[in-house]
Measured scan of single mutants.
Amino acid sequence: AEEIWQQSVIGDYLARFKNDRVKALKAMEMTWNNMEKKEKLMWIKKAAED
């Protein structure tokens, strides 16, 4: 689920960090860890469908 979420937001994060992939990935990891369980559930369901 986290991978699907990352694939959907990586472009936004890379743009925000001027294509600094290391910073973008760290920010994504922090965002994922801070997400509410119900927000993650949507992505977990999406992962299950694929």
Score class of each variant (00 low, 15 high):
R21D: 05
K18A: 12
D50W: 11
M42P: 13
A24S: 05
V9F: 05
M35Y: 02
A15P: 05
E3Q: 11
N19F: 11
A27W: 06
E3P: 05
K38Q: 13
W43I: 02
F17G: 01
E39R: 03
R16D: 05
A15R: 13
A47R: 03
W5E: 00
K18L: 12
E36W: 03
E39I: 06
N19Q: 11
D20P: 00
A27Y: 03
A1P: 14
A15K: 11
D12P: 03
W43S: 02
E36S: 15
R16F: 11
E49N: 09
W32L: 00
K23N: 05
K18P: 07
E36Q: 03
W5A: 00
L41K: 08
K38N: 14
W32F: 02
A24W: 02
A27F: 11
E36H: 07
D50V: 15
M42K: 14
V9W: 02
A47K: 03
Y13M: 06
D12L: 08
G11K: 13
V9K: 04
K23T: 08
M28H: 00
K46A: 12
I4F: 15
R16L: 14
Q7N: 06
N19R: 04
G11S: 11
K18W: 10
D20T: 00
Q6K: 10
E2P: 15
A1F: 04
N34Q: 12
A24R: 01
N19E: 07
Q7A: 15
W43A: 05
I44R: 03
L25A: 08
N33Q: 10
Q7D: 11
V9L: 04
A48S: 14
A15T: 13
W43Y: 03
W5T: 00
E39N: 04
M28W: 01
D12W: 06
A1C: 06
M28C: 02
S8K: 06
W32I: 01
I10E: 05
G11D: 13
I10K: 05
A47I: 06
M35H: 01
A15C: 13
K45L: 14
K46S: 07
M28L: 07
M42E: 07
K40I: 04
T31P: 01
D20H: 04
A1T: 03
K40R: 06
K18G: 10
M35G: 01
E29V: 07
N34D: 07
W5F: 05
E3G: 06
G11N: 11
K40T: 02
G11V: 10
R16W: 03
M28F: 01
L41M: 07
V9Q: 03
L25R: 06
S8Q: 09
R21V: 11
K18N: 15
N33K: 11
K38L: 10
I44L: 13
E2A: 10
A15V: 13
Y13Q: 01
K23H: 06
I44E: 15
K38C: 15
E3K: 15
M28Q: 00
A47N: 07
W32Y: 01
M30R: 07
A48D: 09
